[in-house]
Nucleic acid binder design. Structure first.
Lengths: 193, 193
DNA sequence: CCGGTAGGTTACTCCCGGTAAGATGGCGGT
DNA sequence: ACCGCCATCTTACCGGGAGTAACCTACCGG
């Protein structure tokens, strides 16, 4: 079996099995068995268990980013861009449920490597914000992106706990805060037109 | 050594050493050595490595919540409450740097147990929001609280990566989004009075 | 027909989470 | 003063899983 194909195959298995049973609960032996090979094969391709986890997270997050980017590109206003991107974010996680568990099993991983992967998402978000609010300092844009990404991730985990919260509701709650702002809501109405 | 005192001593050591070197990198033997006892002692008090981690996280988060609650109580307006609480959140993490690493090493832990601890923070935040925007459905309040807590945690991790971001700046970026809202900022000004 | 190499397997080592069984020591009762 | 009891701690061990060394095999170019 050629190298690239085998690696795709292994990452597929890793995403599935880490997502289902949790990183810490899964042995490399188990992943290997699922692929139909033996342990050392995994090590020649990914170096360590953590390396494999990283590859699996990178794959899943890249799919997620793709979905969000498509939704954002299809929007015709800043508000629609934020709302649509967020909504598709939650819907993607509904479709590919196990994948999200991966992002929660971030533990044990060298923080720097993980943050590097996450940076794709925040950089993308910051770029969208830059287009909407030109002239803002880069640090502020990044900070805003962190707020949005952090809020979405936390809402996603919350939805994992309480299944009764729909993707639409989660999106609405995010928009309340990040788009309208508490100042507007607190005065008893939606954001002023 | 009496039971309660020993437990405090062990949790102290666990917070320090897990925070410094990361949960996965630390053996129970190492924690025991730091306390000056042997491994089985830890197991009689906390049952498992994960149990000890949980106790350490609970301790650190409870301190954090206390700091935030004091700051919020001292504020004289909704905006000051949010700003002050957030600022003290970041300042606490600056003072007790290693503690925050704990929250990042959430991995490997049974999600439900961890979310239970985190719920203290979101419940507190939701209660503050309820007082400010009366008549809001409970689910929406909780959602808003998730947004704020998620944003703060993400900003905190970001600050861990990029030391040049001050607590004041992080607070400002959060207020931009959550208080003013992008709608207001996008139209080129601060939130309307 | 043959050597070399990519890709794979068997068979280990070592570390660490977790535990069983025994030592120590203070304290109340007689 | 002595004895037994309970809490507390230690030594010594088990099992499993991450990671590796050494060997095997089948394909491909000459």
């Amino acid at each position: 079996m050629p190298r690239a194909e085998r690696e795709r195959q292994i990452v597929d298995a890793a995403v599935a099995v880490f997502g289902e049973r949790g990183y810490a609960e899964v042995s490399m032996e188990a992943v290997a068995e699922r692929v139909g090979v033996t342990k050392p094969v995994l090590y020649t391709h990914f170096g360590s268990k953590e390396g494999l986890l990283l590859a699996a997270i990178a794959r899943a997050r890249s799919e997620l980013l793709d979905v969000v980017a498509r939704a954002a590109a299809a929007a015709d206003s800043p508000e629609a861009m934020l709302r649509g991107g967020t909504l598709e974010f939650f819907r993607y996680l509904d479709r590919r449920a196990p994948a999200w568990q991966l992002f929660c099993s971030e533990a044990g991983v060298t923080d720097t490597a993980l943050e590097e992967i996450r940076a794709q998402q925040t950089d993308f978000t910051a770029a969208l914000l830059a287009a909407q609010v030109p002239g803002t300092e880069p640090a502020r844009l990044t900070g805003w992106a962190q707020v949005i990404v952090g809020a979405c991730e936390r809402l996603a985990v919350w939805r994992g706990q309480d299944e009764s919260v729909t993707a639409e509701q989660a999106t609405e709650y995010l928009m309340d805060m990040v788009w309208s702002g508490l100042a507007g809501l607190g005065r008893g109405g939606a954001a002023p037109a």
